[in-house]
């Protein structure tokens, strides 16, 4: 049985990609299978775990709860789009590396995208803000403590602050 296919132009990390997909192709699968962007991870596939979180027009969204055919008018940012133009790690990625914000790394892409958008809205989060920022993402390894530290460290890095010990920044610069 041949399934109807749709021509879709997806704009991902600033690059337009033309793909032919069935309507039921989840955005998460289109990113991974059709575009080869396997940085976006798929855990639960029903919106609960947050591993598949990407930015849709700058706002975090579950890519497992969108169809590729619905993403035509949006600009998508995946974890691959969070590195700096020169290829070095972006501030949130850098902070995770410094603060041991990941262990197995399965959940990490969802955290990185979520926090990137979260810091754009709240550039100087308190620890409580940081916890709230990641409240919708599950991690089975870290116990979250180092992820919260990473949020605070990423805020400092974004500011160009060079505070040496992660997770102990004051709220003022």
């Amino acid at each position: 049985m041949s399934e109807e296919l749709y021509d879709v132009r997806l704009t991902v990390n600033g690059v337009a990609h033309d793909v032919r997909v069935p309507a039921r192709r989840l955005l998460s699968d289109a990113l991974r299978h059709d575009l080869g962007l396997t940085g976006t991870h798929v855990g639960c596939e029903h919106g609960v775990c947050g591993a598949c979180t990407v930015l849709v027009d700058g706002r975090p969204a579950r890519s497992c709860l969108m169809f590729a055919v619905s993403a035509v008018d949006s600009s998508i940012t995946t974890v691959e789009g969070l590195t700096r133009d020169d290829g070095t790690l972006g501030p949130v990625q850098q902070a995770f590396a410094e603060c041991h914000g990941l262990q197995c790394g399965f959940c990490t892409p969802g955290f990185l995208t979520t926090i990137t958008a979260g810091l754009a809205d709240h550039p100087s989060p308190t620890e409580d803000d940081a916890r709230e920022m990641v409240a919708g993402n599950l991690c089975r390894c870290t116990g979250y403590t180092n992820i919260v530290k990473s949020v605070l460290r990423a805020a400092a890095l974004r500011d160009g602050r060079r505070t040496p010990s992660p997770g102990t920044e004051e709220s003022e610069t």
């Binding site: 920022m133 409240a135 919708g136």
Partner: peptide
């Protein structure tokens, strides 16, 4: 209602 990420959509 849910989490911020869900409320975005």
């Amino acid at each position: 209602v849910a989490h911020a990420t869900i409320r975005n959509r």
